[in-house]
Design a protein around this nucleic acid. Structure first.
Lengths: 127, 127
DNA sequence: CCGAATCCCCTCTGATACTG
DNA sequence: CAGTATCAGAGGGGATTCGG
């Protein structure tokens, strides 16, 4: 299966829309969390520290829309809803994890570089 | 070298700040473009279709600040500025490329899933 | 328990115009 | 050529409230 005819560097390429979603703040973390297996809403909210319920809902809806996550409602009281990665969503784990691992490894270096940069920046007074 | 003491799922983890940057709209594309080798501003602007010069500048500044890209100015007229991935920036290529490849492969499926989803969504009239 | 809906701030972004 | 400055609009995202 060829993918050569698409170029992400072209602004009209659909991959731009996909990249926008995949690259957003919460998607990485939610997919990473779901890698551990099916999870209910409240579990996700707890695991992904700092996400508002609005953003979590939104992120999950988008993932569901993109066919990367399934949403299963159990008709009971109190309600219970489970989210699970689809096959397609599972394949996303690999690049996501690569990104997460890279981040973990380079975090310190980056924070240090920022500190240095900001330091030298401060040394340059305005004309 | 251990990385175990950090947890991206904790809202105070510095990796959150790193993920925010890495995951933004243009960084993926700029890093991908620079993978081909050093490039000047105008070349980048041309390659990364659709980026405004403001966003390109901003993206490059951030990458420079994070120590992922070097900026070399040649004192001549007209001015010439070249950007190049640092060693650290080069290592970022791997996860970025993984993401780009995944995107290319799943783009069609995702666009189709969205279409389906939106279709069924439209079938549900308001109460 | 799992959301939808609303209000509101404020950041991010893109156009446009101006310098070295 | 490679930026900086400025402004206005769109939308991301939090807090809160209400419904099934």
């Amino acid at each position: 299966m060829t993918v050569l005819e698409w170029d992400p560097y072209d602004r009209n390429c659909p991959s731009r829309q996909v990249l926008d979603r995949v690259g957003d703040r919460w998607t990485v973390l939610v997919v990473g969390a779901l890698a551990a297996g099916p999870m209910r809403f409240s579990e996700l909210a707890e695991r992904v520290d700092g996400v508002s319920q609005k953003m979590l809902t939104q992120t999950l809806r988008n993932l569901e829309r993109d066919g990367l996550v399934t949403r299963t409602m159990y008709a009971q009281i109190p309600p219970r809803v489970e989210y699970e990665l689809t096959d397609s969503g599972t394949t996303l784990q690999l690049p996501m994890k690569a990104l997460e691992d890279w981040t973990k490894e380079h975090m310190r270096g980056i924070m240090a570089a920022r500190y240095e940069y900001d330091l030298h920046k401060a040394e340059l007074p305005k004309p």
